[in-house]
């Protein structure tokens, strides 16, 4: 009963070390050394190195995190630190590597090099410890259409070995506004209702961190507002840390306390919007900052 210990898709550690050197940094995939922040290299790269060494309050601490599919480097030497209570907006165009990064945080995909700690645990070595504390709303979350919303949630609870989850299930259904249709088959749900149910499934296990991959996908304006409102309330009411991936800058700028900008697998910048504004000499406008980084890279 042991989750995978070796790397998949043929990108073994030896593979990883070699390519790490090519980047000017010998990042070993496993040992603690990999946790040391590495220096930024590509310009214009304001990517903040994790400021403090103590990882007590860091919910996510990634160092040199790299993912390659064959020759293609999809996530490139990512150093990232996300603090408790943050709402971290993960930005980047299609194919930037946002989902891949989240999957590595969860241990669903193995890094080719580098390491990450989620709540102090290594998702490669202790995937279950990570997964029991993390709620993950996938890009295109699936449900059992032949079960009701209530039953779908119950199954998630059982997989989390929760007991007497009836009340909890009803609570989260209320939270996302699905109490009324709890007994309805999910195959009869609309796109937005499914998205809400997805959020309910994420919250029902009482996670410490949630990863939301495009949480507003398919929601109507009202749904988007409810979702954003809900997300803003999570850190305060439930002590949650939220990592949110999205293309929709105006939405992210409404809720995120900090953002990270990812392009072709490289983290161009991370920090609060004010910090990034200071660094770039722009106004505190995410849209402007985003374009700055993308134009900068192109130049």
């Amino acid at each position: 009963m042991d989750e995978l210990k070796t790397t998949d898709e043929g990108s073994g550690p030896e593979n990883g070390a070699g390519a790490g050197e090519a980047l000017g940094e010998g990042v070993s995939p496993r040992d603690g050394e990999a946790l040391k922040p590495s220096s930024p290299h590509s310009a214009p790269n304001d990517a903040e190195t994790p400021a403090k060494e103590d990882s007590s309050e860091a919910v996510i601490l990634a160092a040199g995190l790299t993912k390659r599919y064959g020759r293609e480097t999809v996530v490139d030497n990512l150093d990232l630190r996300i603090e408790r209570g943050d709402i971290f907006g993960f930005l980047g165009p299609n194919g930037a590597g946002k989902t891949t990064t989240l999957l590595m945080f969860l241990g669903l995909t193995l890094p080719s090099a580098g390491s990450v700690r989620v709540l102090g645990e290594d998702p490669v070595k202790e995937p279950l410890k990570v997964k029991s504390q993390v709620g993950y709303l996938a890009e295109n979350m699936g449900f059992y259409g032949d079960l009701t919303a209530y039953e779908n949630l119950s199954y998630v609870c059982e997989l989390n070995k929760m007991r007497d989850y009836g009340e909890k299930v009803e609570e989260v259904l209320g939270l996302v506004g699905l109490s009324e249709v709890a007994g309805k088959l999910v195959s009869e749900f609309s796109r937005g209702m499914r998205q809400r149910l997805g959020l309910a499934e994420v919250l029902v296990k009482d996670p410490k961190v949630v990863f939301l991959d495009e949480p507003t996908l398919g929601l109507d304006p009202d749904g988007i507002n409810t979702m954003l409102e809900l997300i803003t309330r999570l850190p305060g009411e439930r002590g949650l840390t939220v990592i949110l991936s999205s293309h929709l800058l105006y939405l992210v700028s409404k809720v995120a306390t900090r953002v990270g900008i990812l392009k072709k697998g490289k983290l161009l910048a991370q920090g609060s919007i004010a910090e990034l504004a200071g660094k770039t000499g722009l106004e505190a406008d995410l849209e402007a900052i985003y374009t700055y980084y993308f134009r900068g890279e192109a130049a």
Binding site: M1, D2, E3, L4, L106, L108, P127, L128, K129, K131, S132, V134, Y136, A138, N140, M141, G142, F143, Y144, G145, V156, L159, N160, K161, E201, K205
Partner: peptide, 20 residues
């Protein structure tokens, strides 16, 4: 089927091993 309907990644993001 579970992979195609997107429930596989959901199950596997719960604390359960793949072999289970």
């Amino acid at each position: 089927r579970e992979r195609n309907q997107g429930t596989l990644s959901k199950i596997l993001s719960q604390p359960i091993h793949r072999d289970e």
